[in-house]
């Protein structure tokens, strides 16, 4: 799936990713508490540890696959069937985040696989409207960017 940045669609949820020029350089957006030196994804409205203010933080676009599965039953949200999800250890912050996986790369999934974030039209949002979702694809897919 290489459809990032092609549509003027809303994100599945606000404030969870940013897309660069023409969709290249998509990054996850999270939060950081300067007092606790802790990062979060998604960004909480306040730090759950000190209840202080949270700064927006760009969590980057790369990581490694910690674990994964392919869901083969009828999906919700108009997601592809089958679709992959995994926990990804983000480079830099070290956060382990849940993410969708590129439906075209499901046969290449293995623990430790280097991944890069992409954003594209996938499924519908809570109101049933088409939307953009972030997903991870094997890192070399984006090497040309």
């Amino acid at each position: 799936m290489h459809s990032e940045g092609t549509a003027q669609l809303p994100p599945v949820a606000p404030g969870i990713f940013t897309t660069g020029q023409e969709g290249e350089g998509s990054s996850l957006l999270g939060g950081a508490c300067p007092a606790c030196d802790r990062d979060f994804f998604p960004r909480p409205s306040r730090c759950p540890l000190c209840l202080g203010a949270i700064d927006e933080k760009n969590l980057g676009s790369t990581g490694k696959l910690y674990t994964f599965t392919v869901v083969r039953v009828k999906p919700s949200w108009g997601l592809p069937c089958p679709y992959g999800v995994g926990y990804v250890d983000l480079d830099g912050s070290g956060l382990r985040v849940l993410g969708l996986l590129d439906p075209e790369s499901l046969d290449r999934l293995e623990i430790g696989l280097p991944l890069r974030l992409a954003v594209g039209e996938m499924g519908v949002d809570l109101r049933g409207n088409p939307c953009l979702r972030p997903f991870f694809q094997p890192a070399e897919e984006g090497a040309h960017e």
């Binding site: 949820a13 674990t67 994964f68 599965t69 869901v71 999800v85 849940l98 979702r133």
Partner: peptide
């Protein structure tokens, strides 16, 4: 949930690990 997490997937990912 909106990123596709359903309960069987959660346990499947524990199994893989």
């Amino acid at each position: 949930t909106q990123l596709g997490l359903v309960t069987p997937a959660s346990f499947a990912m524990r199994a893989v690990r």
